[in-house]
């Protein structure tokens, strides 16, 4: 039922979602930690910035990225001077766009998990002469692993479901920017409903199973 092009789009989507989730863990964890612990007056502006992609239409992000990635945009000027050309219509460009798009879905659950730990366990660890890094890795991380699962699943799933931003900056290139959501759109446009059903139905089942696994493995987790 699935053509080689469909499988290519599926593989590309999984690659994109995995890359984006891992990168967001690396960059988002320190930000979430800072947001949960800091009393700085910059806390609120940064929180608002992080949550911005939640409320913005994808077209706003897509439009600004298209302009910024262009040869005269700030990112385009930088990437050209580094000799890597323009990021629009490329897989790395899609990764950056998806990281912005999925950022709140990773940082927010992590921040909630870090806040839920409270000061007490960390203070106890400090009296046992655990340094800041040791406190984070030996105390905070294990206590907030549910937050990490939630953040990972949401970041991954949200990137799989991305469409508007990809449509605006992707250029629909097989193997590098034609992800599943765009492939389904093209099938529908070209009246290939059979192929659209196969992909769309498969995605529904996949998403349901992922969410089911998450809810099932965490009995006390009621909602995200």
């Amino acid at each position: 039922m699935l053509s080689a092009a469909d499988l290519g789009a599926l593989w590309l989507t999984l690659k994109l979602a995995t890359t984006v989730t891992l990168l967001l863990f690396m960059l988002g964890t320190p930000v979430a930690w800072w947001l949960a612990r800091s009393r700085s007056r910059w806390r609120h502006p940064v929180s608002a910035l992080v949550a911005l992609p939640l409320v913005l239409p994808p077209t706003v992000l897509g439009f600004y990225l298209l302009v910024a990635f262009g040869p005269h945009g700030p990112i385009g000027v930088l990437t050209q001077s580094l000799g890597i050309g323009l990021l629009s219509f490329t897989f790395p460009g899609l990764v950056i766009a998806s990281m912005l798009y999925s950022m709140p879905f990773v940082i927010q659950p992590l921040r909630n998990a870090f806040e839920a730990i409270g000061e007490r366990p960390l203070e106890v660890a400090a009296t046992l002469r655990a340094g800041p890094l040791d406190r984070f890795f030996s105390v905070a991380l294990p206590l907030s692993r549910r937050g990490f699962v939630t953040a990972g699943v949401l970041g991954f799933a949200h990137t799989v479901g991305e469409f508007g931003v990809v449509l605006m900056i992707g250029g629909n290139i097989p193997q590098s920017t034609r992800v599943v959501s765009v492939q389904i759109f093209d099938h529908v446009e070209a009246l290939q409903y059979g192929q659209a059903h196969a992909l769309a139905g498969g995605l529904m089942v996949f998403s349901f199973l992922v969410l089911l696994a998450v809810y099932g493995s965490q009995p006390r987790l009621r909602s995200f």
Partner: peptide
Amino acid sequence: QFVRTGNA
């Protein structure tokens, strides 16, 4: 638009 913004 792709051409106008210079991305292509």
